[in-house]
Design a protein around this nucleic acid. Structure first.
Lengths: 235, 235
DNA sequence: ACCTGAACACCGTTCAAGT
DNA sequence: ACCTGAACACCGTTCAAGT
């Protein structure tokens, strides 16, 4: 009100608009190519201008991850506990697949598993309490679910060296020409393993989603938690 | 034999000695502070000298991860399948805790889940086959185990912004002053959650190992896989 | 309040030149 | 064969100066 700023100017810089631009740039060029100077170029502004709105590169990337996690909406806690866990994990996975380039930031840095995720943490505790988990058993179950959810997707979306270069072909050949004398099972199950399993894939989950592996892991986690409840190991 | 090289010179540069030095430097200063120039300084050599022995920074770090994974010795496959899986996962976790700074390289980059891990993959397939898993069910079980093993540890060892700075104190306070009206379960279980659970911790697993969470996840995975076998879902 | 313009202390990598 | 020395094209961040 005091200044003479162009309020309708869509190109006005702000923390939000910078985060938005960063999200786009990450999706386009990937995390390794991301730089403050490149982002400034994209915003049509000098590099130093960003530092007026955002303290740091680290802090900016933290804001990006918070936006991604904050945009996930949490399933209704009145659902049966296993349905809720399945739905939550699937939504988390979907959200990260939409922003695959930012995935290493979330799984690799502690800052992203922070207060912005408190609503998810709280609701998960509520749901698992409702299922019958108590005290240490509750915290264990909580860690199992969060560890699976963030851990699996983080691994699924791990970065490949090239998007489709010679490295991929090399890994492909490595599996194709695996010696059946040394690695009989790898050789025998080649077709099922090729680009579909950890260690034996050559593309990241963004290019080759591991749906079956995710659903199997989810199923195993739920079965395991049910077994713990039946044994009274829920706390 | 042709040249006049000092063969006994312990300071002779080689790919192996560079990897060794990188491993030490990573442990001392962390991944974010790691640079080729810093490594060259540590080796008492000009930066460009490294490039004679090693193609790339990326390739060098790949060699580092291969060394870490290659050094893990694989349990005897004649063990009961669940004992084998538990032992393998614990050894993998121990190896990574010894080189926590390199952990993001392994969980975050596809290159590390590569041919150097074929022996682990092969033996896991052998053991799970022995347990009764077949075809697609075998590959599912395989992915569940590998996903848990690498995924959990990768998340456990995620990088904290500071080693012990103001960020930690801030996160500590955030949990301490959590509003019981908004987050009743977080508030009620504060003591159990503090620095011990994903989202509610402020230190990385290298400073605050998540033993209970790991063992609980392992237990859940094994229970879940057993349940799948009993249901005939093993293939 | 918000951005420019220049500067500083770093990077990774290449390449001719030395030995 | 193996390393030096200099150079190139980048970084993230700071800070005085402009408006």
């Amino acid at each position: 009100v005091t200044g003479a700023r162009a309020e309708g100017d869509s190109s006005a810089l702000s923390a939000e608009s910078i985060v938005e631009a960063a999200l786009l740039l990450l999706e386009r060029d990937g995390l390794d190519a991301f730089s403050m100077r490149g982002l400034a170029r994209e915003c049509g502004v000098y590099p130093a201008a960003l530092y007026w709105h955002v303290t740091d590169k680290e802090r900016l990337l933290a804001l990006v991850t918070m936006r991604i996690v904050g945009d996930i909406d949490i399933p209704d806690p009145r659902l049966p506990w296993d349905t809720w866990v399945a739905e939550m994990a699937r939504r988390y996975r979907r959200a990260l697949h939409r922003h695959a380039a930012a995935s290493p930031l979330i799984s690799g840095h502690l800052v992203s598993n922070s207060a912005n995720a408190f609503p998810i943490a709280e609701t998960l505790l509520e749901v698992l309490s409702g299922a019958g988990f108590r005290m240490a058993g509750l915290v264990d179950a909580y860690n199992v679910v969060v560890g699976f959810m963030i851990g699996f997707v983080g691994l699924e979306l791990a970065r490949a060296p090239d998007l489709d270069g010679p490295w991929q072909q090399q890994r492909r050949d490595e599996l194709d020409r695996v010696d059946p004398e040394v690695f009989p099972r790898l050789a025998a199950h080649r077709a099922l393993l090729a680009n579909r399993a950890f260690i034996t894939r050559w593309q990241s989950g963004s290019a080759a989603p591991m749906d079956a592996a995710f659903e199997a892991s989810l199923d195993v986690v739920l079965r395991g938690l049910r077994a713990r409840l039946d044994d009274g190991a829920g706390g």
